[in-house]
């Protein structure tokens, strides 16, 4: 589904990502761990088009997406999240979902001549999603007024509206309490059952090991290990550089 081959990224003289290759197979949940500054977010930025790599290739479902813009990549079904979940603060919860609908037509002329309003069907879909996540009664509130846990949950509600093929989650467990983490994990597994592939960056090793099928470990911009959660947790090198700290 997603193949990353020999990615290099330099900032000034600093190597953020060095010769990284990884593969995410369809239907899997893949983890990516590493210390701060290991290059995980840079790699995410390169994959999702927010940053251009110096060389290397990113393939999504057999299509070369290395040179596409973030919105083009999103169009192909790759949706990413950011480290801090803010949403669109001064849009309502419902609008936050509607923006992400894959049925939207944002073209100026289409909206100018024939009014493209959010159709009743679409609103209904969005309301159903909100209901599933327990956010329905807040649908007309500004997202800026939501609590941090609600914002985390909203990220997934949004993503569902966009029918993603693959989701890249940037530290979903950061700053999340144990109860919410349970909740997020069940959401992720549920989505995965429905065919969404995941690539997850996180610091929380227990969370990653519990949820993923396969883990890549990065340090100083390089991949230093990969394997199933069991092998990773017993890998000497990983323990030294990552858990040891």
């Amino acid at each position: 589904m997603l193949e990353v081959t020999n990615i290099n990224k330099f900032y000034g003289g600093v190597r953020a990502v060095e010769n990284v290759s990884l593969e995410v197979k369809k239907g899997k949940i893949i983890g990516l761990i590493g210390t701060n500054g290991a290059g995980k977010t840079t790699l995410f930025n390169v994959i999702s088009g927010f940053d251009k790599s110096d060389n290397g290739i990113v393939n999504l479902s057999g299509k070369d997406i290395t040179k596409l813009t973030p919105s083009n990549i999103a169009e192909l079904g790759l949706i990413r999240t950011f480290q801090t979940a803010t949403g669109f603060p001064r849009l309502t919860v419902l609008e936050n979902l509607l923006v992400f609908s894959s049925k939207n037509n944002f073209n100026f002329f289409n909206n100018f001549l024939i009014k493209q309003d959010n159709s009743h069907d679409l609103i209904e879909t969005a309301e159903n999603v909100l209901k599933n996540f327990g956010l329905l009664e807040k649908k007309n509130q500004w997202v800026g007024d939501l609590s941090a846990p609600e914002l985390k949950i909203l990220e997934f509600a949004r993503a569902i509206m966009g029918d993603p093929l693959i989701m890249l989650l940037d530290e979903p467990a950061a700053g999340v309490n144990p109860a919410l983490l349970e909740n997020l994990m069940s959401i992720i597994t549920e989505l995965n059952k429905n065919g969404v592939t995941f690539l997850i960056v996180d610091h929380n090793l227990r969370f990653i090991c519990e949820i993923t099928d396969y883990i890549y470990v990065m340090n100083d911009g390089k991949l230093i290990a990969e394997g199933t959660p069991d092998t990773i947790i017993n890998n000497e090198l990983v323990i030294q550089t990552y858990i040891g700290k």
Binding site: F88, L98, Q116
Partner: peptide, 28 residues
Amino acid sequence: NSTYGLSLKALRENESLAKTARIEPSKQ
């Protein structure tokens, strides 16, 4: 109040996130 307007507000609120919603900033 159209979908176009929604995309503009999304860009105003958070341009990076708007990109992940398939909105192309330069066009809008």
